[in-house]
Simulated scan of single mutants.
Amino acid sequence: MSVVTWCAHHGITKANYYYRLRRVREACLKTIQGKMPAQQVVPVEPELLQCREQEGRTPQSGLDISIKGFSIHVTESTSMPLLAEVLKAVRHAE
């Protein structure tokens, strides 16, 4: 059902609908933010972050992740949305 149809059916204006929707979202965000744990920093030994030479490639600092037979090299320039999508795909791979 469209917003216009829903508003007509319930006798409210579209502006009032969006106002109430915004208020509900703000209330939900306040509730969620109180329950979210602070981001944790995981200490990593410096030896684990050393560059590793690979065949035909120059060494790059970063993090190598191996999961389900896949190897992923992450650097500080790796896009977080891209990494999230890759990890999601690997999680569902068989």
Rank of each mutant, 00 (worst) to 15 (best):
M1G: 07
S2C: 04
V4A: 14
W6Q: 01
W6H: 05
W6K: 04
C7A: 14
H9N: 12
H9R: 13
H10S: 02
H10Y: 15
I12E: 03
T13H: 09
T13I: 04
T13L: 09
N16C: 12
N16L: 15
N16W: 13
Y17E: 00
Y17V: 03
Y19G: 00
Y19F: 13
R23V: 14
R23W: 06
R25N: 11
R25M: 12
E26T: 06
E26N: 09
C28N: 09
L29V: 13
K30V: 10
K30G: 02
K30T: 03
T31I: 12
T31M: 12
T31V: 11
I32E: 08
Q33H: 10
G34F: 08
G34I: 04
K35Y: 07
M36H: 02
P37Q: 07
P37H: 09
A38Y: 00
Q39T: 09
Q39G: 05
V41W: 08
P43C: 05
E45N: 10
E45R: 04
E45W: 05
P46M: 05
E47S: 10
E47A: 14
L49S: 05
L49G: 05
L49N: 04
Q50W: 07
C51Y: 04
R52H: 08
R52E: 14
Q54Y: 15
Q54D: 06
R57Y: 12
T58N: 06
T58G: 06
T58D: 11
S61F: 08
G62E: 02
G62H: 00
G62Q: 01
L63F: 15
I65K: 00
I67L: 13
I67K: 07
G69M: 06
S71V: 14
I72Q: 01
V74D: 00
E76I: 12
T78S: 15
S79Y: 05
S79D: 14
L83S: 06
A84N: 09
A84P: 01
A84H: 12
E85Q: 14
V86E: 02
V86W: 00
L87P: 00
L87T: 02
K88Q: 10
A89P: 01
V90R: 00
V90Q: 02
V90A: 03
R91H: 14
R91K: 13
R91N: 05
R91M: 13
A93F: 15
E94A: 11
